[in-house]
């Protein structure tokens, strides 16, 4: 059985069924995979993670870990390790005592557990911190201690709940890189919850996009970005998000970077549009054009992102000929908002 964690028909309701935090989720992770649960606040991603951890009891459905049904089991029987958003380090214990705690709880012999702590601390580069108390650590150091505490148990799966959200923006980029390298070194299956799509794209082997307690799409970052399963994913992923233009019962979608001046795309099967630019932003070398597009359906506000390599002169307040390559267009049913077959334009 290659799936480390499998959830089946999982439903979790709160307040006597009034709130459906998880609304029928089926999901399986593969061995050694980095699966990211991505969604806006309140979409149920943290509840899903907590249910896998055993901190929440599902209303219906099952959780399987390593081939065993653990649905009714307490967290400690599940061979999991979790890093909390707050890190939840024990404030009255030293770093060493924090890391050794799970091993003592597992009644490991002292020489063995000292060796384990040493190994984990070395891996995360926190040997010099072992004697300190959590309040004497910086945010990044705390995160590493929390990881070390999770690591020493050699769990079947790591569960990480927005572990980067408490770090400042500069530290977050390096911490993200460290997390990824760490996971590749350990090779342990990881489920990672975040609302930050950059984190999800950068870290995930696969991304599960959640909304309103349901999985909208599971796939490789490229898949989720290029071939969104529905308009929610199309709008949620990408910054700026995918443009959607209504036409004859379908929504025609195209990414901002595929809407380009006609003179910048000389060849290929092009769909011609008219873009009336009313505002322009210059962001890290790219030009973001805000305006109204016509020629596809009713006039719709869209965004175009011109990379630095496209140098066509554009002035706000003017209208220009723009094109999208036909194979870049995505089609969604206007009623169900799911992907549909292309329609002739």
């Amino acid at each position: 059985m290659s799936a480390v964690v499998t959830v089946r028909d999982l439903v979790k309701t709160f307040d006597h069924g009034k709130v459906r935090a998880i609304d029928g989720v089926d999901l399986a992770t593969e061995q050694g995979e980095y699966l990211v649960l991505l969604g806006p606040s309140g979409c149920g991603k943290t509840t899903l993670l907590r249910t896998i951890a055993g901190l929440e009891r599902p209303t219906t459905g099952q959780v399987w870990i390593n081939g065993f049904d653990v649905t009714g089991l307490p967290p400690r029987a599940r061979r999991i390790a979790m890093v909390f958003q707050s890190y939840a380090l024990y404030p009255h214990k030293t770093v060493h005592a924090n890391i050794v705690f799970p091993l003592r709880a597992a009644r490991m012999a002292r020489p063995d557990r000292e060796q384990k702590v040493r190994w984990a601390a070395e891996l995360l580069g926190i040997i010099p911190l072992l004697g300190r108390k959590p309040r004497q650590l910086s945010g990044g150091e705390r995160q590493r201690v929390a990881l070390a505490r999770a690591l020493v148990r050699e769990p079947a799966v790591f569960l990480l709940d927005e572990p980067l959200s408490n770090l400042d923006a500069q530290l977050r980029a390096t911490a993200r890189d460290e997390l990824k390298r760490f996971q590749q070194e350990i090779g342990t299956t990881t489920i990672y919850v975040t609302h930050d799509q950059a984190e999800a794209m950068g870290l995930g082997d696969r991304i599960a996009v959640l909304s309103a307690g349901q999985v909208r799409q599971v796939g490789h970052p490229v898949e989720v970005y290029d071939d969104p399963a529905d308009t929610f994913v199309a709008r949620f992923i990408g910054s700026p998000p995918m443009n959607l233009v209504a036409r004859d019962g379908v929504l025609v979608g195209f990414r901002p970077e595929h809407l380009l001046p006609a003179d910048a795309v000389p060849a290929g099967d092009r769909v011609r549009l008219k873009l009336a630019v009313d505002r322009m932003e210059y962001l890290s070398g790219d030009r973001h054009l805000y305006g109204r597009v016509s020629g596809l359906g009713p006039e719709t506000r869209v965004v175009a992102r011109l990379p630095a390599t496209v140098t066509s002169p554009i002035t706000a307040g003017e209208a220009y000929d723009f094109v999208v390559l036909r194979d870049r267009l995505r089609f969604f049913d206007a009623r169900t908002e799911r992907r549909t077959d292309p329609v002739p334009l």
């Binding site: 055993g54 967290p75 400690r76 979790m82 909390f84 939840a88 024990y90 709880a105």
Partner: peptide
């Protein structure tokens, strides 16, 4: 913080260990 109790649960500590430690 509730996290503290839950972290100890995930770390495999039983009721009495969580209570005492």
């Amino acid at each position: 913080p509730r996290d503290m109790e839950e972290a100890a649960q995930v770390d495999g500590a039983g009721y009495w260990r969580r209570m005492v430690e």
